[in-house]
Amino acid sequence: MTGATEDSHDVPPVDLSAEESEPTKRPGFVYFLGYGIMAPIARLVFRPTITGRENIPRTGPVILASNHLSFIDSIVIPLVAPRRVQFLAKSAYFTGTGFKGFISRTFFTSIGAVGVERGAGQAAQEALDAGRNILESDSAFAIYPEGTRSLDGRLYKGRTGVAWLALTTGAVVVPVGLIGTQEIQPVGAKFPRIRKITVAFGEPLDLRRHGSAESGKARRGATDEIMAAIHALSRQELAGTYNESPPSGTLQKIADRVFPRERV
């Protein structure tokens, strides 16, 4: 992990006002029904080792910042946390039609997902605003600072959107270390397997000492502190770089050099 220096790619997000952002719907009946059914079954079948649940504040805004190894991570965290947790998922999970669309929409609603468009620029800012709305409703919000799941098992450099959320809302950050979830549903697997996993919740981090959310140095320093705490829990090898696919063509490579993508 790098030190608390300003990264030239970490451009401050545009701060849209709360009035311009639509309020995020809080989980309702479907969430509690799904949680009530799925949580006991998951614990019985997978018997996860869970540590540090007492580190999650029972009230107030809190960010659960986790490493990301598998699609199943977004199911595991809400099912083992001691309070309601929401996270962002691609909007396609909520917009399907027919019976398949209904099942997908119901399932992701039941585990606390909020649909957003993926992408950089405005789409990334809208995702951050959705997370801010969740936190400003005094809820728990789960996020993967790496941006996408690790395909090689290493822990990648964190993007500063997590720090922007924490410093903007005043939410404490609870680091989360997931171990073994990639064995439940490896990349390309259609169905989950029964494997032993560990979910470790670290001590809450108060990041206000790093400074204002408008400061690139503050966001970078806060993000690095979060990633160091995740690393202490997950014990993964450090990649030392961002987790992203290489540009697909010459024009894209040139564009990325001239217009570096914001690493939120």
Rank of each mutant, 00 (worst) to 15 (best):
A89H: 07
A89G: 13
A89C: 11
A89S: 11
A89I: 05
K90G: 10
K90N: 08
S91Y: 10
S91R: 15
S91I: 15
S91W: 11
A92N: 15
A92P: 00
A92I: 11
Y93M: 02
Y93C: 00
Y93A: 06
Y93I: 03
F94W: 01
F94H: 05
F94M: 03
F94R: 03
F94P: 00
T97M: 10
T97V: 07
G98D: 12
G98S: 09
G98I: 09
F99T: 12
F99E: 08
K100P: 05
K100V: 14
K100I: 15
G101C: 07
G101E: 06
F102D: 06
F102L: 12
F102P: 01
I103L: 15
I103G: 04
I103R: 03
I103M: 14
I103S: 08
S104I: 01
S104C: 05
S104T: 10
S104M: 13
R105G: 05
T106D: 00
T106L: 08
T106N: 04
F107A: 15
F107Q: 06
F107D: 05
S110I: 02
S110H: 02
I111P: 00
I111R: 02
I111N: 04
I111K: 02
G112R: 03
G112P: 02
A113G: 13
A113H: 02
A113M: 01
A113K: 01
A113T: 05
V114T: 11
V114A: 06
V114E: 01
G115D: 10
G115A: 13
V116N: 08
V116L: 05
V116Y: 07
V116K: 07
E117K: 11
E117N: 14
R118G: 06
R118Y: 09
R118N: 13
G119R: 04
G119Q: 09
G119L: 08
A120R: 14
A120T: 13
A120N: 10
A120V: 12
G121R: 12
Q122F: 13
Q122R: 14
Q122E: 14
A123Q: 10
A123M: 05
A124E: 06
A124W: 07
A124F: 11
Q125D: 14
E126C: 04
E126A: 15
E126W: 12
A127K: 05
A127W: 12
A127N: 01
